[in-house]
């Protein structure tokens, strides 16, 4: 995932703990290999280079596409796995080449999940369109790893892939995992809040320094796929707690996409959250 991935296990002996860690690691690597946009020999590369041809996808990819489809519907089109192409138009480089609204419009033609033909397991993208699981992949990997650990072990474990995390296990819980939140406005100032996690998951979304491009998130900035332009007045950072990491991540992402209405959106979701403007 090209971001710090950690697994904390409260177990003895060491060899036993290492088995749990290795299980999480192998699942993370498997998902990265299969869904990363940055390799040329995986399903995402083939979908994005199909040039209008129809592909039949495997079961796991189909599940993720179904999920992305439902997220698109739920967010009223704001969460869109085809939106990444927009970054081609949004490249300020400090030179005299600033984006031309007509170029944004041109790129904008190549986004929109509603233009994708998805009839499980057959997927057809118009030429020029691309998909990216970057907005789901890391949280999905956390949940998958957590599930695998849960199925085989009962040791108290925290899976943390680049700031998105889930706690599993019931054995030897002395106190919950403590998760610190940093102030995105001032990275030097240390922690602004602590979250205690003994079960369930936490995910954070935002434009803070820690959410690098390389953290598996594809957009450095939150662009509105319905307009092609940046979201207005979004919060800097949203952290959500939910039973699964992917739910927490989606709610955090949906909230940011609501811009200035992020807080009222989250208030209606019956989850714990922290929001920083």
């Amino acid at each position: 995932m090209a971001s710090p991935c950690e697994v904390f296990v409260n177990a003895e002996p060491k060899a036993h703990a290492i088995k749990i860690i290795e299980l999480a690691e192998s699942e993370a690597l498997r998902i990265e290999k299969k869904f990363s946009r940055y390799t040329t020999n995986n399903i995402v590369y083939r979908i994005n280079n199909a040039k209008g041809k129809t592909l039949s996808v495997d079961e796991e990819t189909a599940l993720l596409l179904d999920y992305a489809d439902q997220c698109y519907q739920m967010s009223d089109g704001l969460f869109d796995i085809t939106a990444g192409v927009l970054r081609k138009a949004w490249q300020f480089d400090g030179s005299d080449k600033i984006p031309n609204p007509l170029d944004i419009k041109q790129v904008f033609q190549h986004i929109g999940w509603q233009k994708v033909k998805w009839e499980k397991p057959y997927l057809t993208l118009n030429p020029g369109m691309e998909i990216d699981f970057g907005g789901i992949g890391k949280e999905y990997a956390v949940d998958r790893a957590a599930n695998l650990i849960r199925q085989k072990y009962s040791d108290f474990t925290l899976v943390n892939f680049g700031g998105d995390m889930a706690a599993v296990g019931t054995k030897n819980i002395k106190k919950p995992w403590e998760i610190g939140l940093q102030d995105p406005n001032n990275m030097e100032s240390g922690l602004i809040a602590k979250i205690e996690l003994s079960h369930g998951a936490v995910a954070t979304s935002g434009d803070a320094h820690r959410f690098l491009l390389k953290n598996g998130r594809r957009y450095s900035h939150i662009l509105n796929p319905k307009t092609g332009w940046p979201i207005e007045n979004p919060p800097k950072q949203v952290t959500v707690m939910a039973p699964t990491c992917i739910e927490a991540g989606m709610l955090a992402t949906f909230a940011i996409l609501q811009g200035s209405e992020a807080e009222s959106f989250l208030a209606a979701q019956d989850v714990e959250y922290r929001i920083i403007y």
């Binding site: 999920y67 739920m74 739910e247 949906f254 609501q258 209606a268 979701q269 019956d270």
Partner: peptide, 11 residues
């Protein structure tokens, strides 16, 4: 704002 929570949990 409508809750998408249940829908999301099912998905």
């Amino acid at each position: 704002k409508f809750s998408v929570r249940n829908q999301l949990t099912i998905a």
